[in-house]
Deep mutational scan, measured.
Amino acid sequence: LVRYRTISKIPQITLNFVDLKGDPFLASPTSDREIIAPKIKERTHNVTEKVTQVLSLGADVLPEYKLQAPRIHRWTILHYSPFKAVWDWLILLLVIYTAVFTPYSAAFLLKETEEGPPATECGYACQPLAVVDLIVDIMFIVDILINFRTTYVNANEEVVSHPGRIAVHYFKGWFLIDMVAAIPFDLLIFGSGSEELIGLLKTARLLRLVRVARKLDRYSEYGAAVLFLLMCTFALIAHWLACIWYAIGNMEQPHMDSRIGWLHNLGDQIGKPYNSSGLGGPSIKDKYVTALYFTFSSLTSVGFGNVSPNTNSEKIFSICVMLIGSLMYASIFGNVSAIIQRLYSGTARYHTQMLRVREFIRFHQIPNPLRQRLEEYFQHAWSYTNGIDMNAVLKGFPECLQADICLHLNRSLLQHCKPFRGATKGCLRALAMKFKTTHAPPGDTLVHAGDLLTALYFISRGSIEILRGDVVVAILGKNDIFGEPLNLYARPGKSNGDVRALTYCDLHKIHR
């Protein structure tokens, strides 16, 4: 019993810090008490220290592992850092350059016999395009090294910054494609005289377009951006097909006994025919423009016929181009109408809503002055909100995010209106959640004399007048207030005048 009563005193000691020596009952000389009392004092002292730490809000209350900052290894790049964003855009520009100039170089340097010394005699450094290609190869190699040090988000939505895990993730992902696209074939085969082989191998750079397509997928929600990307894709495919079309004609031209190829026909049409040795002929500019003209006309199913396939190889390629053109029509131009419709969806919704308003007016036989006010209010409210119901949009977000959005939407009023000066951010967040926005066209009466005042109004834009009878008592403008002081009276009061809008007004109100 003594032991039980001794232990039962522990909660009292913990909360009230009572010393055991003052209790005459606990001072009985028993061996059990002498053993338990020192333990009680020690526990009391420890609990006292913990309570003191909690009340003082000291940093040592938290466990040590929670006080440590997340460790980022040296030379690790955050995937959302500004440097990584700028670097990704730079790589994107280099990939676009590669997609345009690599097929052009591979096709127009394929057994090209233009006048001038061969590239091997001039030297590697004197070729501007080769120098640019070398810079692109170096940048792609540097990009691989950067990807080995860039964080990523795993399946659990955690940012991984450990170098080993980053390397394994990159090896399992895009490393092989990036490595093949970054191989400097110019340096590996330079001086061997195989410019045709170098041009063909350099087309491996186009593998990076797969990554670019995935990154550009984030802009699919913007109709104008999608339309622009589709047109660029169409032009890029036409450019690639033009390079292939020229390569076919250029390879067949020296081996044909009869002059029936499209390059021969082009030379005869523009007065620059090929001679018996295969030299001469149109310039590279004429060849490229004509090839691009043929691919565009074939892809769009126009086909004027002034550039036509004559050999079997050219006919087979033309059939493939027609098939590609039909697929592009289905996948690209078939979506253009939907994209344009999405661009004008706001206008369509406006006309639909206006039609419903006019049908309501016609069905209920609203008189002319009231009908005009109804239409003007709808037009003004639509121009202010673009038909978007803010309350319906915010309803799907958590309250903390709703408060931040409301604070942002009402920031101008909260910053410049005098009653809100000096208020804490928590108070402003709470008030912003209570605001209701209303609009009024010129001549609209917001409050009639004798109406119950259940709200306090803040003028965000425009001006109003307060009338008693036919006498203008006051004219209020931006950041002015009218209405009933909230919670100042037990019952809502009545208006002693009319409140009429002089201009288009936007008002925020808080109800009782």
Rank of each mutant, 00 (worst) to 15 (best):
residue 418 K to N: 11
residue 119 A to R: 15
residue 121 E to A: 14
residue 260 I to P: 03
residue 447 V to D: 02
residue 97 Y to D: 01
residue 168 V to M: 11
residue 160 V to L: 01
residue 349 R to I: 07
residue 361 I to D: 01
residue 246 Y to S: 01
residue 322 M to T: 07
residue 202 K to T: 01
residue 393 V to A: 05
residue 88 D to C: 02
residue 163 P to E: 01
residue 243 C to I: 01
residue 326 S to N: 01
residue 216 L to K: 04
residue 105 S to V: 05
residue 393 V to Q: 03
residue 280 G to W: 01
residue 123 G to M: 01
residue 138 I to W: 14
residue 127 Q to V: 06
residue 261 G to V: 01
residue 323 L to D: 01
residue 336 V to W: 03
residue 72 I to R: 13
residue 183 I to N: 01
residue 395 K to M: 08
residue 445 T to M: 09
residue 269 Q to H: 01
residue 386 N to F: 06
residue 356 R to Q: 03
residue 197 L to E: 01
residue 247 A to R: 01
residue 77 I to H: 01
residue 383 S to E: 09
residue 92 L to K: 03
residue 345 S to C: 03
residue 364 H to R: 03
residue 107 A to T: 09
residue 115 E to A: 13
residue 401 L to R: 02
residue 79 H to E: 05
residue 334 G to T: 03
residue 126 C to F: 01
residue 142 V to S: 01
residue 382 W to K: 05
residue 175 F to S: 01
residue 76 T to A: 05
residue 73 H to E: 12
residue 176 L to M: 13
residue 127 Q to Y: 12
residue 175 F to Y: 01
residue 268 D to Y: 05
residue 428 L to F: 02
residue 193 G to S: 10
residue 101 F to Q: 07
residue 410 N to G: 03
residue 441 P to N: 05
residue 277 S to F: 04
residue 381 A to F: 05
residue 159 V to C: 06
residue 295 T to A: 15
residue 305 G to E: 01
residue 221 E to K: 08
residue 249 G to T: 03
residue 167 A to C: 05
residue 118 P to D: 03
residue 166 I to N: 01
residue 115 E to T: 14
residue 277 S to Y: 01
residue 297 S to R: 01
residue 106 A to I: 11
residue 155 A to N: 11
residue 232 C to M: 11
residue 290 T to V: 01
residue 364 H to I: 01
residue 325 G to Y: 01
residue 297 S to V: 01
residue 221 E to T: 06
residue 346 G to D: 10
residue 341 Q to I: 04
residue 71 R to E: 13
residue 259 R to P: 15
residue 376 E to Q: 11
residue 374 L to M: 07
residue 117 P to N: 14
residue 341 Q to W: 06
residue 202 K to F: 01
residue 360 F to V: 01
residue 404 D to T: 01
residue 442 P to G: 03
residue 155 A to W: 09
residue 162 H to R: 13
residue 167 A to F: 07
residue 122 C to D: 01
residue 422 G to E: 12
residue 113 T to A: 05
residue 326 S to A: 07
residue 140 F to C: 01
residue 301 S to N: 04
residue 312 N to K: 01
residue 269 Q to T: 03
residue 248 I to M: 01
residue 126 C to A: 01
residue 246 Y to L: 01
residue 77 I to D: 01
residue 244 I to E: 01
residue 247 A to E: 01
residue 171 F to Q: 01
residue 430 A to S: 11
residue 381 A to M: 08
residue 231 M to F: 11
residue 345 S to T: 15
residue 268 D to E: 14
residue 348 A to H: 06
residue 102 T to K: 05
residue 209 L to R: 01
residue 180 V to N: 01
residue 284 I to D: 03
residue 74 R to Y: 05
residue 391 N to M: 09
residue 95 V to T: 07
residue 105 S to F: 13
residue 179 M to T: 13
residue 171 F to D: 01
residue 90 L to G: 07
residue 431 L to H: 01
residue 430 A to M: 12
residue 440 A to L: 08
residue 225 A to H: 04
residue 264 H to Q: 03
residue 251 M to H: 04
residue 170 Y to D: 01
residue 195 E to H: 15
residue 254 P to V: 14
residue 95 V to W: 01
residue 69 A to D: 14
residue 93 L to S: 05
residue 388 I to C: 13
residue 90 L to Q: 01
residue 93 L to P: 01
residue 400 C to Q: 01
residue 252 E to K: 03
residue 156 N to Y: 08
residue 123 G to I: 05
residue 159 V to R: 03
residue 368 N to Q: 12
residue 177 I to F: 07
residue 82 P to N: 04
residue 275 N to Q: 03
residue 305 G to W: 01
residue 408 H to V: 03
residue 287 K to D: 01
residue 176 L to D: 01
residue 409 L to Q: 09
residue 106 A to H: 01
residue 359 E to K: 04
residue 184 P to H: 01
residue 260 I to L: 10
residue 256 M to H: 12
residue 100 V to Y: 01
residue 133 D to N: 12
residue 311 T to W: 01
residue 419 P to H: 12
residue 386 N to H: 04
residue 270 I to C: 01
residue 237 I to Q: 01
residue 423 A to M: 06
residue 181 A to L: 01
residue 442 P to H: 01
residue 77 I to R: 01
residue 349 R to G: 09
residue 295 T to L: 05
residue 369 P to A: 04
residue 406 C to L: 06
residue 118 P to S: 11
residue 268 D to A: 09
residue 186 D to R: 13
residue 260 I to N: 07
residue 234 F to N: 01
residue 91 I to M: 02
residue 398 P to L: 01
residue 143 D to F: 01
residue 172 K to I: 04
residue 431 L to M: 11
residue 164 G to H: 12
residue 126 C to H: 01
residue 436 K to P: 02
residue 402 Q to P: 02
residue 236 L to Q: 01
residue 83 F to D: 03
residue 270 I to H: 01
residue 284 I to N: 04
residue 212 V to M: 06
residue 92 L to T: 01
residue 351 H to V: 03
residue 206 L to H: 01
residue 213 A to S: 04
residue 126 C to D: 01
residue 101 F to W: 15
residue 384 Y to W: 08
residue 180 V to T: 13
residue 426 G to T: 04
residue 361 I to Y: 01
residue 190 F to M: 12
residue 408 H to M: 03
residue 344 Y to E: 05
residue 120 T to S: 12
residue 298 S to M: 14
residue 281 G to S: 01
residue 237 I to K: 01
residue 394 L to G: 01
residue 419 P to Q: 04
residue 414 L to F: 14
residue 362 R to V: 03
residue 252 E to I: 03
residue 209 L to P: 03
residue 180 V to G: 11
residue 184 P to Y: 01
residue 346 G to R: 07
residue 237 I to C: 09
residue 68 Q to T: 14
residue 363 F to D: 01
residue 434 K to S: 04
residue 264 H to T: 03
residue 299 L to F: 01
residue 408 H to K: 01
residue 371 R to F: 01
residue 183 I to W: 05
residue 368 N to L: 08
residue 231 M to Q: 07
residue 256 M to Y: 04
residue 250 N to T: 11
residue 240 W to F: 03
residue 437 T to I: 08
residue 182 A to P: 01
residue 179 M to N: 01
residue 351 H to L: 03
residue 243 C to R: 01
residue 392 A to T: 05
residue 106 A to R: 01
residue 226 V to H: 03
residue 295 T to P: 01
residue 377 Y to Q: 10
residue 80 Y to K: 03
residue 169 H to F: 05
residue 159 V to T: 05
residue 257 D to H: 06
residue 409 L to M: 08
residue 243 C to H: 01
residue 143 D to K: 01
residue 72 I to G: 15
residue 364 H to S: 03
residue 350 Y to F: 06
residue 349 R to F: 07
residue 396 G to N: 07
residue 200 L to M: 11
residue 92 L to P: 01
residue 82 P to E: 03
residue 418 K to G: 09
residue 252 E to T: 03
residue 368 N to H: 14
residue 313 S to T: 14
residue 193 G to I: 10
residue 330 A to H: 15
residue 253 Q to H: 03
residue 188 L to G: 11
residue 250 N to A: 14
residue 113 T to W: 11
residue 227 L to D: 01
residue 160 V to F: 01
residue 382 W to S: 04
residue 326 S to P: 12
residue 231 M to K: 01
residue 112 E to W: 13
residue 302 V to L: 01
residue 198 I to D: 02
residue 420 F to L: 08
residue 330 A to D: 04
residue 70 P to L: 09
residue 215 K to I: 01
residue 186 D to L: 09
residue 395 K to P: 03
residue 260 I to R: 05
residue 211 R to Y: 01
residue 428 L to V: 07
residue 122 C to A: 01
residue 366 I to D: 01
residue 214 R to D: 05
residue 258 S to H: 13
residue 78 L to I: 06
residue 89 W to T: 03
residue 207 L to W: 09
residue 99 A to P: 01
residue 213 A to F: 11
residue 394 L to P: 02
residue 199 G to C: 12
residue 346 G to K: 15
residue 90 L to C: 07
residue 437 T to G: 04
residue 170 Y to G: 01
residue 247 A to Q: 01
residue 344 Y to P: 03
residue 258 S to F: 15
residue 347 T to M: 08
residue 214 R to Q: 05
residue 256 M to C: 08
residue 396 G to A: 13
residue 165 R to Q: 12
residue 413 L to T: 09
residue 367 P to M: 03
residue 370 L to W: 01
residue 194 S to C: 14
residue 187 L to W: 09
residue 395 K to T: 14
residue 400 C to R: 07
residue 143 D to Y: 01
residue 199 G to Y: 03
residue 235 A to I: 11
residue 222 Y to E: 04
residue 340 I to R: 03
residue 262 W to E: 01
residue 127 Q to H: 06
residue 270 I to V: 03
residue 290 T to S: 01
residue 174 W to R: 04
residue 369 P to I: 02
residue 270 I to Y: 03
residue 84 K to V: 03
residue 139 M to L: 14
residue 448 H to T: 10
residue 381 A to C: 04
residue 435 F to L: 09
residue 219 Y to N: 04
residue 86 V to Y: 02
residue 449 A to H: 12
residue 290 T to G: 01
residue 348 A to P: 08
residue 262 W to A: 01
residue 248 I to E: 01
residue 380 H to T: 09
residue 213 A to K: 10
residue 285 K to L: 13
residue 409 L to I: 09
residue 279 L to E: 12
residue 362 R to H: 13
residue 69 A to Q: 05
residue 194 S to D: 09
residue 350 Y to Q: 07
residue 81 S to E: 06
residue 448 H to Y: 14
residue 300 T to W: 01
residue 434 K to C: 05
residue 268 D to I: 14
residue 111 K to N: 04
residue 192 S to E: 11
residue 342 R to P: 04
residue 271 G to H: 05
residue 405 I to L: 03
residue 380 H to I: 03
